[in-house]
Amino acid sequence: MAEQLDLPYSGLVSFGQRPFLTEPEQLDSWKPDVAIVGAPFDIATTNRPGARFGPRAIRATAYEPGTYHMDLGLEIFDWLEVVDFGDAHCPHGSTEVSHANIRERVHTIASRGIVPVVLGGDHSITWPSATAVADVHGYGNVGIVHFDAHADTADIIDGNLASHGTPMRRLIESGAVPGTHFVQVGLRGYWPPQDTFEWMQEQGMVWHTMQEIWELGFKEVMKRAVGEALAKAEKLYVSVDIDVLDPAHAPGTGTPEPGGITSADLLRMVRQLCHEHDVVGVDVVEVAPAYDHAELTVNAAHRVVFEALGGMAARRRDAANAKPGPPSPLAT
C-alpha cells in the first residue's frame, strides 16, 4: 500500500510530500538545502485567532501543484534538496517558551547552512525566527523584505511587547536587523498612525504603500524594492504576511484589509527576490484556515513557499551553469 503515500490527499502530512525529519542528527545526515518548519503560535494575535492551524493546513490542505516550474524551466527538487523538519513546540498560553522554542529550532536549521522556511503562526514569530537567522549570519548582515498590510512596528499593544504588531520594532531595537535594512511592501489602511511612521523614518526604514503601487505600477515598485533590498545587506530574509494580499485572494487571515495586492504580483516578487538575492530565511504567516473560503488563502500561502523554493533552485542552477567546467579533451 505504499502508493497511498504518493497522493496529495492521503498518507503522511509533510510539506510537498518531502522527507519528514524530527532530529538535528537527521539534518546532518540528509544535508538539505532548505528545511520547512512550522511555528503554530497565535496567542499574540490582536483580532481573529486561528493562525496556529496555519502550518498544518499549508502542509495538508493545499492543492498539490507539482514541482516543475514553468516560468523558470526547471524541476525544483532536481536543484534543491528540501525536507520538512516538523514544528517548533509552542505550548498554549506560553509566549516566552514558544518564542524561545521557535528561535532554537530555526537556529538548529540555519546554523547548519540550511535555509529555514517557517510556516506561521501569527507575525510575532518573525521576531524569534529572524533573530535566529541573524544569530548565525551576524547582526546587521541580514536585511528583511516584509510584505504586509501593516508595518508591525508598534512599541506595545495592550501591554504586550510580543504582539503580532510589534516584531519588526523588536528586531530593530535588539540590533538583529537595523531599521536601514528593512524594505516593506503593501502597507495600507488605518495602521500605523503618524507617530509610528515618524519612528520608522528615524530608523531609516523604507516602505512602499498600496497607493504608491497604484500610482507607479507593481513592476516599478518591485524593481525599486528589489534594488533597495540588494543594496542594504549581504543576506536577505523574506517575511510574508498573507494579509498583504487583498481579502479577495486571501480571506483566511486574522486582520484582512481590503485594497491589497494580487497573488500573481506577490508570487512573482517572492520568486525574483529568492532568485536574485542570497536568501537565508523565509516565513509565511497569518494563515488562519478557519476563516478561509475554498482554501484560497491556504493555496496562496502554499504557492508563496513554492515560488521561494523555485527562485532558490533557479539561483543554484544559474550558479552551476556559470562555473567553468574542465577543459574539453578536444580543445587545442
Rank of each mutant, 00 (worst) to 15 (best):
D155M: 02
R169D: 14
N47L: 07
D87V: 06
A132R: 05
V83I: 08
I114F: 06
T153S: 10
V82P: 02
F20G: 06
A39D: 02
F182D: 11
V97S: 13
E220W: 00
S239L: 05
A313Q: 04
E276H: 07
P326I: 11
W127A: 11
G73Y: 12
S328T: 14
T262N: 02
V270F: 01
R188A: 00
E3S: 11
V118E: 05
V13E: 07
A301I: 06
T108N: 12
A294W: 00
E307A: 05
P327M: 07
V279E: 02
L21M: 13
A130V: 15
S29C: 07
W199S: 14
L267V: 08
G325L: 08
P251C: 01
R59M: 08
V34Y: 03
F85A: 15
H208Y: 13
P256C: 00
G179S: 08
G179E: 07
L236H: 10
P55Q: 07
A100P: 02
F20R: 14
F182V: 13
H123P: 01
T108C: 12
N321V: 08
T297W: 01
P258A: 04
G159L: 08
I157L: 08
P116H: 08
L72A: 15
S263L: 03
D265W: 02
V37Q: 03
T108F: 03
G227L: 11
D283T: 07
A162L: 12
E234V: 14
